[in-house]
Design a protein around this nucleic acid. Structure first.
Lengths: 334, 334
DNA sequence: CACTGGCACTCGACCATCGTGAGTGCCAGC
DNA sequence: GCTGGCACTCACGATGGTCGAGTGCCAGTG
């Protein structure tokens, strides 16, 4: 159905359209690519490609532009991932070296991606896959207020201030020790179970303060770390004529954490996934593509870039993959 | 120079232009406002106002629009702050009630402001004005790694994991107690001073691990909490023709924390400050106005909204002030 | 049979022209 | 000092015509 030359034509159309942003015609095509056939022949091929739904005309007597299906074929079979330039490679290392903590890492990563691809970058905060409770502290702030601190192996620290009836330091520490004994070294789910019966076993006179304390510990280990997402490179949207016309709904969507999460989707390992145009589950992203990859291992999540369907897939796929790998290495090395 | 009627005319021009977004002419003015004079008279007044630099014509034979100077006069002398509607008032309370922590408070506040004003909202994370060290904990994770936890009265918790030579629990706790004694209840600056000489007084054999521990405590209390700023309501920019033409530099600027901080400026107490057009220090915000207010007391910072110079000052000033006050109350009540 | 050159046709982009009307400044009169 | 009247200006939108890139089709050729 599609012989090699037709595939070449499609490939040429995609690359030309991506770089010129304008519908590409048969004549320009034979000039810019060594196709070794005449424009008329290319026209015939284009007619077939159009019939099959890989390309389309924005209006009669204009050049052709790729459809979602065309891009898909291009990404799956025609594009070979373009290795990063040395400059880009070194940008990644210099940008990420000297990272202080997770917050910093995420911030730097999202900026890096936005800069490398000149698209909108999206990075999800890594969430711990396995974590255990490592430390519990009860701390008298004032006679009526105490702070509950729970530290997990993931590095997560929850602290809550609660009101509680007056209690002396000794009984407080006794309670702390009992709680610590029950949950330290355990995963949140187990720990919650172990805490369940604990209140019943404390002396009745201690229950008024033990109750709230245990409750807040439970809350700390139960609370799903809010899956958090950060975005950078929004200015790059404004440069793209594709989006400029109706920026508003897009910007709106990009302020919604939920939408962003869905866009990144599930990413397994550091495989790069590409979602083109209508393939995106979310409303309003019909003319956008997302290139995403997972990163990290025990601490893991997704990152990616979003741009117009007319984007430079070979380069951007390489960039996303490289950044994901680098961040993974960074996380596992501490 | 400017009699009452001229001021009335200016006021009418500002309000009409804000609501209609179109240059306003003399005829429309007398029709929509009870000025009790003819259009010709208004034209004379407008000529004076233009001469004085309060209004201008985008082109000959078009209506007039206010200049920065005109808006300034309007804000300072003509506008009376419009009380919030009951709906808005209740929106504030329902939106902010049920706030869990500082993070949550900031996120909700910025969204609330964006929604109330339909402009870009900017909220700075509150930073502690006065804080004292409240708690120090040294925690053996593995024989070679220990976690240092420092809690300050601001609610801030720093935890760091450091590598240290093997040490037993007893000597570790002894060190903890000495550190605690030296710094608990003190402000960071004093505490740092008190810690300075401490290493010299520990037994020489303990120094290998005492050194790093003290260093990390110092770091925890020294580190300025990064002044952090969040933004919401960017979609509202896209709706405004003022900005739509050159969105890109604006979006770029709004991704820079430093720029945002400068835009909010120093806000004293909960006084509302208004910066109109060129009054903004930052480049590229010549056609934008910022309404900002401080909030909070011990924990304090600034918040505000950014929009086109052509914005509804009376309402937005009211909204910013109300939100700032509400958030302040929220913070002081715990 | 696939490819090519030629040709008529289509249709959006671009440009110049022109009428319209809102809005102005000025002036004489009340 | 205010008003009505009047001539003038100029952005805006509609109209229409030209231009050219690009197409589809067809007959001819190796």
């Amino acid at each position: 159905m599609l012989d090699d030359r037709k595939l070449d034509v499609l490939k040429a159309i995609v690359t030309d359209y991506v770089s010129s942003r304008e519908p590409v015609g048969s004549k320009a095509l034979v000039e810019r690519h060594r196709l070794d056939v005449s424009a008329a022949t290319v026209r015939n091929d284009m007619a077939v490609l159009e019939e099959e739904g890989y390309i389309m005309q924005p209006h009669t007597s204009a050049g052709r532009i790729p459809t979602d299906k065309g891009y898909r074929l291009f990404v799956d079979r025609l594009a070979h991932i373009k290795p990063l330039s040395p400059a880009e490679r070194s940008a990644i290392t210099t940008y990420l070296n000297g990272t202080a903590d997770i917050d910093d890492l995420v911030t730097r990563t999202v900026r890096l991606l936005a800069q490398l691809t000149r698209q909108v970058a999206i990075v999800q905060y890594p969430v711990a896959q396995r974590t255990v409770v490592r430390h519990v502290d009860l701390l008298l702030l004032t006679p009526e207020r105490l702070m509950v601190i729970v530290v997990q192996s993931s590095g997560r620290v929850d602290q809550t201030v609660i009101e509680a009836p007056t209690v002396d330091e000794g009984r407080l520490q006794a309670l702390r020790n009992r709680i610590a004994e029950a949950i330290i070294g355990r995963a949140p789910a187990e720990a919650a179970g172990a805490l369940g019966g604990l209140v019943d076993t404390v002396a009745p006179e201690d229950r008024p303060f033990a109750g709230p304390v245990v409750a807040s510990v439970l809350e700390a280990i139960a609370a799903e770390p809010a899956a958090h997402v950060v975005v950078a490179g929004l200015p790059n949207l404004a440069g793209s004529p594709t989006f400029e016309s109706n920026l508003m709904p897009l910007l709106e969507a990009l302020e919604e954490q939920v939408v962003l999460m869905r866009l990144l989707g599930e990413a397994a390992g550091d495989n790069v996934t590409v979602r083109i145009g209508q393939e995106n589950a979310s409303e309003g992203f019909g003319s956008a593509s997302v290139i995403a990859a997972g990163y990290g291992k025990e601490l893991s999540a997704s990152l990616g870039v979003l741009g117009p369907t007319r984007m430079d897939y070979p380069s951007h796929i390489a960039a996303v993959r490289a950044v994901a790998r680098y961040v993974s290495r960074f996380l596992s090395e501490g």
